[in-house]
Amino acid sequence: MSGVDTPDGLAFWLPLVLACVIAVGVALYVILDGFDLGVGILFPFFREEGERDQMMNSVAPFWDGNETWLVLGGNGLFVAFPLAYSIIMPALYIPLILMLLALVFRGVAFEFRWVAKPRHRKWDIAFATGSMVAGFAQGVMLGGLLDGITVENGRFAGATFDFLTPFSVMCGLGLVVGYALIGACWLIMKTAGPLEQQARRYARPLLLGLLAFIALVSLWTPLEYERIAERWFSFPNLLYLSPVPIVTALLAYSCWRGITGPYTSRAFYSAVGLFIVSFIGLMISVLPYLVPFSVTLWDAAGAPAAQIFILVGIVILMPFILGYTVFVYYTFRGKVRPGEGYH
């Protein structure tokens, strides 16, 4: 880690462990809310009311729990790395607000749509648009972060629209395509009949689209940032990191087979794998920076007392949270059948 000052002992490990915990939380958020945002993004492409009912029913018991990971991620940053939080949030102000407002629309649509029936069209639109805008804004935030933030004296010192670059817009589009893919794979797994078939038809171009975006980011970032190029292409890193593209290719193949073959859940789990590998790839590019490339996770670390306190809570409570999350997914396992739930 050339050029980075790292402390010793607890001051080294504590922020690192918490950064890993937050990373896992963010990854879980992206995957879990990813599929329910994706279902919303695909909403306009399914025209029948019955199909839309099924789509919404397939995610309705989960969306709230899924979105809680977003709160955990934001709060984790606030607790463990207050400096990073107080730099990143103002820097990504516009896409952040956009995302929050979009989540308002799509969140209430889950309940409002049923009450409004038969005049629920506006909530179909709110659900689809909200999901799309939320996904796009999250991608823009990711891109804006990767592009770097102007920091002076430990504070955000850039302009309001600094986040808006061709790269961040591309990341926004890429994430929308990625969410749509994972949403389509979810529908393949959770629905049956024409709806499932249609989801399979959509999933193929979406997978190709996502791979194109992954390739684009993988080329763009090393060309733009020497540091990222060095991280990936210097020896022996090249050797250690070569599994990342290889695994990506294998998962992409598996996902393709899952979509085209007689499999129920293979496509979904492969798409989840693609998200995880991409996420790991991004982490390799930027770590140990939380605000690339000015603030490391050690620079941004908050009070050790606060970090220990929250870590104790996480260690004790996370098994329970994961346990009942699994319980709910198990309770609502299996396919939502066509026609079910609305007669």
Binding site: T68, V71, N75, F78, V79, G302, A306, I310, I314
Partner: peptide
């Protein structure tokens, strides 16, 4: 943040996920 943050963190961990 060092003081307030963990309290809200515990709210997320003990309450939000449960609800």
């Amino acid at each position: 943040g060092n003081v307030i943050g963990p309290l809200i963190g515990y709210e997320v961990l003990t309450a939000f996920f449960l609800e």
